[in-house]
Amino acid sequence: MRVPVRARFPLGKPNWPSSVPRPALERRTGVDYDTDWARKPAARVARAVIVDDVLRPALHLIASPTVHGEDRLVGLEAPAIFVANHHSHLDTSVLLTSLPEPFRHKAVVAAAADYFFTTRAKGAMSALAIGAIPMERTKVGRRSADMAAELLDDGWNLIMFPEGGRSPDGWGRAFRGGAAYLSLRCGRPVVPLYIEGTGRLWRRGKKWPKVAKRGEGVHLVFGSPVWPEEGEDARRLAARVENTVAALADEWSTDWWSARRRAATGTTPGLTGPSGGAWRRAWALDADASSRSGRRAWP
């Protein structure tokens, strides 16, 4: 914001002579926002309070999340990379507040640099409240990749949404390779997660979330940790993670045994929905949703 009446020099800032070249401006927003301070003890305590005492109760009020398959994490040692499908701004909070210890209070969230870190104030808020670190959407840049790898090596858990943004239409999009790349680079497992129902409550494009009615709550399904196999590249690993999330979705909408049988025969329904016209995708989504909850996704 610009102060309308500027104090004159020397009270105010001096002008820069036009003939003198200006040095390159140090960028301090976007990917270049430095989030180090948000991982210092004081900030961590503050974040623990925010996550456990503000976000969690608020979320229970709005979304009443139910967690499934938490037992799959028993025995898993930190750090790990948690990846999930992405429908809504609620996803991060759902995930963050549902992670079991010891993951929850030592986690950072890869957040779109071009959305969460556009201003320093927004960046500070994101970094403090959810432990966000800036990340490019399209491909992992050198700087953010290095930072994420360093954090993983330091024992920080990483939460990522490899679709590269919230779903525009309720269907998933193909997983990008960032998480898989980090998994291979740091030798840590990827924990796939499937989040269901957040899109119903807070779709992309809506200003405010709806409050979940009875039986309309959000579900979060943990999958078994996926470890990189020998000789696997990031693309293959990413595809495997995506299949696992798809199987989790299948498991949630039918049952585990049926999902395992479909997974074994390679007939797990994909996350991305049918190809074709937009109406067909919306139609299929509705059919899918009504078969589960008896509620129509359309208004």
Binding site: H68, G69, D255, W256, W257, S258
Partner: peptide
């Protein structure tokens, strides 16, 4: 048995 097995078979 865990919920996954229960929900798959019991119903």
């Amino acid at each position: 048995l865990g919920d996954r097995i229960y929900d798959s078979f019991a119903p």
